[in-house]
Amino acid sequence: MLQINNVSKIFLGQRKGLFGHTEGFKALDDVSLRVAKGKSFGLVGESGSGKTTLTRCILRLETLTSGNILYEGADIGKLTPTEMRRLRARLQIVFQDPYASLDPRMTIHDIIAEPLVIHRDIVPMTARQRTERVLELLLQVGLREEHLFRYPHEFSGGQRQRIGIARALAAKPEFLILDEPTSALDVSVQADVLNLLHRLQEELGLTYFFISHDLGVIRYICDEVAVIYRGKLVESGPVEDIFERPTNEYTRMLLDAMPDPDPDRSPFRQAASA
């Protein structure tokens, strides 16, 4: 469904003289991957690994230095603005920070209805139909009717993330980019949101592109996983394989560093008892 072919992205360094630049920073280096329809694809990486740059490239918020990104066979970089707008209705994103990604001056109704207003040529609806759709979405993500005309600051982090998910789902997309959607949440809330994402995928047949630094979360939600380190994919494959039989040194280190809530698995205790 989504095909990323040999994508590189170099951020230019500071301007030097009239035409020159200092040496640029290679955020993505020859990245290739494929996301299958109806599946969850996980991208694991630490800060500065280029995972956010990759999502920005998919959404065409950045231009590629080389390579291309195909969505159902169409090159995203070659779409006309109108075609791109149509694509944005089908390809949505949920952001990491539920506090920063909702406009503080808009009601929940207006936030969730926004994609419907923007894409009214694709999903023609009357104002009343839009409100009904928003209500349907609210219930779908586990919020209630009376939340409709409140403002974002009145909600907890988990509730806000549900609002962000409802907004992403409003125009009935088929592909969802989830950029660390639970990393700002408490674990118990994270569990609820992850289960919600599971349920929505089953109900709506969505394809997920899930970005996280948390291997546990990736393991829980994804079918396939790719590990990115300093702009390069170091390893990718089915989730079972990568977690049970990592071949790459960096992947193994990540798995080892993952703090497990079982005290017996603590490296310090193991060292002490050995």
């Binding site: 994103i93 920063a100 503080p104 926004e114 994609p115």
Partner: peptide, 11 residues
Amino acid sequence: QFITAAKALGA
């Protein structure tokens, strides 16, 4: 980020 979010929605 909510501006990026609006851009991603196609605004």
